[in-house]
Design a binder for these strands. Structure first.
Length: 275
DNA sequence: ATTGAGACCTGTCGGC
DNA sequence: TGCCGACAGGTCTCAA
């Protein structure tokens, strides 16, 4: 499920039950997810108090009183379930946190692409996956200039560049397509076209950065309102439907890039769209 | 150094 | 109804 907005929603949902709470016990119900759990995982969590739950890209970071940080990634199918009391574990409940409050938080992940790790709090940036992350898209550090700089000289398609977490942290397959549609840029162009030869932003870089911010913040707002389980995407999974851009009569197409589906409008996101 | 393909896993959905 | 392949919102590794 989760790209940045979904992970942020999970974070907000967990905060009231986790932050300020003490972990009484942790059940680890299999030896690994995508990677093995670190040595002594359950023991090192037991008895600690959670002082903060942050998000970086698609990672959740729980700060513990033991001066370690619990690093969590939901992969493709990870989710948390909160219960008032202990009950029967469900299929694919791999980790169960029992809080001193009595609340039980189960991590469920059928595909097991998720990750849980425990690292010294001062050393988080030394984790390769976290240290290499690009800027937070909703922060002021991320703008057209930063995006252009990261894309300069790159021949990979623009869509693929947006999925590269080193370019910007937290975009995934859905919002990459949606942001490109909003910015009216072709997903197939070389990423380099949004920058000048010396890496300065072209107008398209500013448009794209703004579109990324808009698409993500709208998604976060929608998650907060919680209701709409329907189909809130601009182009993702909308092959054959009308392009949502004003004044565009195009139809959404689907192509495969780097083994993944890309949805875009063949009219307003034409390849030749310069600048 | 970049880039693309394949691998990792299970569930679901559409077509026959 | 049942089987089978295609596909799924994410990374990581490996070989060009």
């Amino acid at each position: 499920m989760p790209e940045l907005p979904e992970v942020e929603a999970v974070r907000r949902e967990l905060v009231p039950f986790l932050v300020g709470g003490r972990i009484d016990r942790v059940q680890v119900r299999r030896p690994d997810l995508r990677r093995p759990f670190p040595a002594g995982f359950a023991r090192r969590l037991r008895g600690t108090t959670v002082s903060d739950l942050a998000r970086r890209g698609k990672y959740l970071l729980a700060q513990l009183s033991s001066r370690e940080t619990l690093v969590m990634h939901l992969g493709m199918s990870g989710s948390f379930r909160i219960a008032a009391a202990r009950g029967e574990p469900e299929a694919h409940d791999h980790v169960v946190f029992e809080m001193a409050s009595g609340v039980v938080i189960a991590f469920n992940d059928p595909r097991r692409f998720g990750v849980m790790d425990l690292v010294p709090s001062g050393a988080i940036e030394r984790l390769p996956a976290l240290g290499a992350l690009g800027p937070e898209p909703l922060s002021s550090a991320f703008d057209g200039a930063a995006l252009a700089h990261a894309c300069a000289g790159r021949k990979t398609p623009l869509k693929a560049a947006l999925l590269d977490q080193r370019v910007v942290a937290g975009l995934g397959n859905i919002y990459a397509s949606d942001a490109l549609n909003l910015a009216r840029l072709s997903p197939r162009q070389h990423a380099a076209i949004i920058a000048t030869p010396v890496g300065l932003p072209r107008p398209s870089a500013h448009r794209l950065a703004a579109a990324i911010k808009k698409v993500l913040s709208r998604a976060i707002d929608r998650q907060a309102r919680d209701s709409d389980r329907s189909h809130p995407f601009r182009v993702y999974d909308r092959e054959g439907q009308r392009c949502p851009n004003r004044g565009c009569a195009g139809v959404i197409r689907r192509i495969t890039q780097a083994g993944r589906s890309t949805f875009y409008c063949s009219v307003c996101q034409r390849r030749a769209t310069r600048l």
